[in-house]
Amino acid sequence: MTIPTDRLSDPAVRALVTAINAHDRAAFDAALTAGATMSDDGSDRNLTQWAEKEIFSSRGHLDVESESDGGLSLIARYRNDTWGEMLTAWRFDVTDGRVSRFETGQA
């Protein structure tokens, strides 16, 4: 059973996941701090390039199955047109109400 995006506990994480699922680049950027960083499967990536490839040009989508750590850690089914669907883990750092870093990878 998935958790509806609008029921995610942390407002910054909720805003970012909502933007991802809507493919809304402006909302995605607004949910992040200036200079936000990320990693995928343990390797730091260029966030802008990664988001274009993994979210926007490939129609990425998150279905959150569980959350922990006050909503800063998620287990979600992530799918896009490039890789299909996989079970993923996400960990978020939030600064001043926006996501300053996220780490994702296969769960």
Rank of each mutant, 00 (worst) to 15 (best):
F56L: 11
A26P: 08
L16W: 00
A15W: 00
N21L: 05
T48G: 09
P11W: 05
A36Q: 09
S39G: 14
A51Y: 00
G60L: 10
D29I: 08
D63T: 15
H23Y: 05
I55R: 01
I20H: 03
R25M: 05
D44I: 04
D10N: 15
L16F: 03
W50G: 00
M38R: 08
H61T: 10
N46W: 05
M38V: 13
S9H: 07
Q49R: 09
S43Q: 15
I20N: 01
R14F: 00
S43Y: 15
I20F: 07
T18E: 00
P11F: 06
L32N: 01
E52C: 07
L47G: 11
T48W: 06
L16P: 00
D41L: 14
D41A: 14
D44Q: 14
E67L: 08
L8A: 06
I20P: 01
L62K: 06
W50S: 03
A15P: 01
D29N: 13
V17W: 00
T18Y: 00
D40C: 13
T37E: 11
R7M: 04
W50E: 07
A30R: 14
E54F: 13
T37H: 11
S39Q: 14
R25P: 05
S43P: 08
T37R: 07
G42D: 11
L8E: 00
H23K: 09
D63E: 15
L8I: 05
L16R: 03
V13C: 09
D29Y: 07
A51D: 03
A22P: 01
D44N: 08
S57K: 13
V13P: 01
A26T: 14
A36M: 10
W50D: 02
S39D: 15
S66V: 14
S43L: 14
L16M: 12
S39V: 13
R25N: 04
D41M: 13
N21G: 04
L8P: 01
A22M: 04
D41K: 08
R7V: 02
D10Q: 12
H23N: 10
D24H: 10
S43E: 15
R14Y: 03
E67F: 06
T37Y: 07
I55Y: 09
T18F: 00
S57Y: 07
D41P: 08
R59Y: 13
D29F: 09
M38A: 15
S9V: 07
D63A: 15
G60R: 06
A34C: 12
R25H: 10
A30T: 05
P11T: 11
E67G: 09
E65L: 15
T37L: 09
L8C: 00
E65H: 13
A19E: 03
D44T: 11
S66W: 13
S39T: 14
A36Y: 01
S66C: 14
D41S: 14
W50Q: 02
E52R: 06
H23F: 12
A22S: 04
G35Y: 05
H23E: 12
A26S: 14
R7A: 09
A19K: 03
G60A: 08
L32F: 04
A34M: 08
T37P: 04
G35E: 03
R7T: 11
E52Q: 12
K53P: 01
N21Y: 01
A51H: 01
T48K: 10
E65N: 12
D40I: 06
A36H: 06
H23S: 13
A22Y: 02
E54Y: 12
I55Q: 05
G60S: 10
A15Y: 02
N46Y: 02
N46L: 09
L16T: 02
